[in-house]
């Protein structure tokens, strides 16, 4: 299959990345050559193969539902590009 420009713009929308109109052509070319490469997998019949979801022979551990830290609001807010004393600040979302 091939990816057209409209499809790429749609995927970019899903990924929340704005795409520069001037770059759409080269992006389309690159992605199509990558997908052509990826689609070699279609040569293989995998009908009877179980998908590999974990390479470890162990299931994920569970832990006790206990609080192990807290009171670190300042540390968490420290790197925010926009904040007040208590919250992250984002552009207005409710009119």
């Amino acid at each position: 299959m091939s990816l057209d420009k409209e499809k790429i713009k749609h995927v970019a929308k899903l990924a929340r990345i704005s795409v520069d109109e001037a770059k759409v052509d080269s992006l389309t070319k690159d992605l199509n050559s990558i997908f052509k490469f990826i689609e070699q997998l279609n040569e293989l019949n995998t009908d009877k193969v179980e998908p590999l979801t974990s390479i470890l022979n162990q299931s994920l551990r569970s832990r006790k539902d206990e609080i192990s830290d807290g009171k670190i609001r300042e540390k968490i807010l420290k790197n925010s590009p926009k904040k007040n004393e208590e919250f992250f600040v984002v552009p207005k979302v409710v009119e």
Binding site: L41, N42, L44, T46, V49, E50, P51, L52
Partner: peptide
């Protein structure tokens, strides 16, 4: 899903 299957192989 296809890739996960080939990963198994």
């Amino acid at each position: 899903l296809k890739a996960q299957k080939v990963r198994q192989l």
